[in-house]
Simulated assay, not measured.
Amino acid sequence: MNSVSYSSMIPGKADDVVVYFVYGTLCLGQCREKCWPLTPLSVHPAWVEGTLFGREDYPALRPGNQRVGGECWFFAKRDTERVTTVLDEIEVTNQPGHPNLYDRVELRANLIVSSDLTSSADLKPQNTADPRISWTASAYHYATDPLLDGFNRLTEQETAFGKFSVWPAEKWRSTSVL
């Protein structure tokens, strides 16, 4: 896969793309960034509602009401099966003979666009009816209680993009990622 960075292009048609929200080791600059089987159409900083847990090696997402920062990776719809198969293997989801480590879920992911940066302390969600800003994305929730596996609940912190729970803690410390 080619080197990828955040893109200013937001895909226009939801019918033509599939979106994956990632918040940990599959993000740009993290240890599994190169595990994606194809180069995405684009990658954008984004957030979802949930509760984020972390430990040194990787994070865990569960349902909740925090704003959890991560990335939306956009692929052509025709690549759905290939990308999903690889991500399911990485996340130990639907693997014969193995209990799920993560469960694949669909979430509403909200892109963070440059206009959001003008008021990062009071960042409000964009019009979630706008299909360019809010997308249905596949994501992975930790299948069991993360606290039982040595994770700690992460709290929201101020980042260059606003207040989010992020893993690792230093993620989004500068606006140079845009």
Rank of each mutant, 00 (worst) to 15 (best):
D57T: 13
T155N: 04
A139P: 05
V92L: 03
A46Q: 00
E56L: 10
P63H: 08
F75W: 04
H98V: 06
G12E: 09
P45D: 02
L148T: 12
W47T: 10
I112R: 00
P37G: 09
T128R: 01
E91T: 06
R82I: 15
E81R: 00
T128C: 11
G12Q: 10
R55Y: 03
N2E: 14
D116C: 15
D88H: 05
L117H: 01
C35S: 13
V48R: 03
T144N: 10
Y142A: 08
Y6W: 03
R104D: 12
Q157I: 15
T39A: 05
S165V: 09
T85A: 13
Y20M: 03
V4N: 11
N65T: 08
L148V: 14
K77A: 03
E106L: 02
S174I: 08
R173D: 15
S8D: 14
G69T: 11
D79W: 02
R67G: 06
L123P: 12
P146E: 02
P96F: 05
A169L: 14
A143V: 09
K171M: 15
T175S: 12
D88I: 00
Q126P: 13
A60M: 07
T128K: 01
K171T: 12
M9T: 15
N110S: 08
G97C: 11
T39L: 09
D57Q: 12
T136S: 13
S120D: 08
R62M: 09
A46T: 02
T25L: 03
S7C: 13
S165T: 09
S138K: 08
R62C: 12
E106V: 05
A137I: 07
P99E: 10
E106Q: 01
T85F: 07
S3C: 14
Y142H: 10
P131A: 00
L111I: 06
D15V: 14
L178Y: 13
A129G: 14
D16R: 05
D149Q: 09
K34W: 11
D116Y: 07
Q66Y: 07
P11T: 07
W47V: 10
N100D: 08
S174F: 01
F161V: 12
R173I: 13
L117T: 00
L117A: 12
A160P: 13
T136I: 10
L41P: 06
P11S: 01
E56S: 11
